[in-house]
């Protein structure tokens, strides 16, 4: 794998590609007592297939809200969100759930594994929710465990796994449905340096295989690894740098 090679060539390659995500003038406001907080203020953004984007900014700048909107977990108050070219903002909750299931994977800082389920079962969960046949499921999960190097830990419960292993299980769960878009919220926030590096390597590897990766982070080092770096302040995208612009 070579991050440097790809990063210099891919922006031009992908310019012509259909955007996976297109946000137009997205507003998301919260009412805090008398005060209206503009978590997202007329944000427009396009993400192309295979993009590697980091979102940085101070706390309360709207990073997480942006991620929630992108992940169809939250609805914008105004504006349009096109996923694979199709508008989503007016879809029913059921249809949005279906889109999440088919297109979007989530990785959280605190893993959000279900404690009573083994590593294997946690990874299997999206397939179960989607109603995949048990045989097919077993095959896919075994392959995933193999790929994550967790085969020996398959039957361990989350509290019997290290932080790095837990996050790898969470990533396995996020990509088992082969989504186009992978959203990671502080994926290394709870990990030591080594485990964090392993997780980042895994995520970047997935990106080189074509997945669109969005990482929200406070970690400047991690943020700088992305080919495209967004910086948010007060609900607006303050800067949108591409690796080529930075390094060139």
């Amino acid at each position: 794998m070579s991050v440097a090679n790809r990063s210099s060539s891919s922006p031009s390659q992908l310019k012509s590609a259909e955007p996976v995500v297109a946000l137009h003038e997205i507003n998301r406001h919260f009412q805090l007592g008398e005060q209206t907080v503009k978590a997202l203020d007329a944000v427009s953004l396009e993400l192309l297939a295979g993009d590697y984007v980091s979102v940085m900014g101070p706390s309360g700048s709207g990073k997480s809200t942006l991620l929630n909107i992108l992940g169809l977990l939250d609805r914008p108050d105004a504006g349009a969100y096109l996923l694979n070219g199709a508008p989503t903002q007016d879809l029913s909750e059921e249809k949005r759930a279906r889109l999440r299931q088919q297109n979007i994977g989530f990785v959280f800082q605190s893993y959000h594994l279900i404690p009573r389920m083994s590593a294997r079962e946690n990874i299997e969960l999206p397939l179960i929710l989607a109603g995949t046949a048990p045989k097919e499921r077993a095959r896919m999960v075994s392959e995933m465990l193999e790929r994550l190097g967790l085969t020996a830990r398959a039957s361990h419960l989350p509290n019997q796994l290290s932080g790095g292993q837990r996050q790898r299980v969470a990533i396995g769960r996020a990509i088992i449905m082969k989504p186009k878009l992978l959203l990671a919220d502080e994926p290394t926030g709870n990990l030591d340096t080594q485990s964090g590096a392993d997780v980042v390597t895994l995520l970047e590897e997935l990106n080189t295989q074509g997945i669109t990766l969005v990482v929200v982070t406070h970690d400047v080092e991690l943020g700088k690894r992305a080919r495209r770096q967004l910086r948010m302040v007060d609900g607006r995208i303050q800067s949108d740098l591409r690796q080529s612009d930075v390094s060139d």
């Binding site: 959000h112 969960l125 929710l129």
Partner: peptide, 16 residues
């Protein structure tokens, strides 16, 4: 609550 949120993020609909 967290688990329900997770299930929803993983594609579980309200009906599910």
């Amino acid at each position: 609550t967290a688990e329900i949120g997770l299930l929803k993020a993983l594609g579980a609909s309200a009906a599910t």
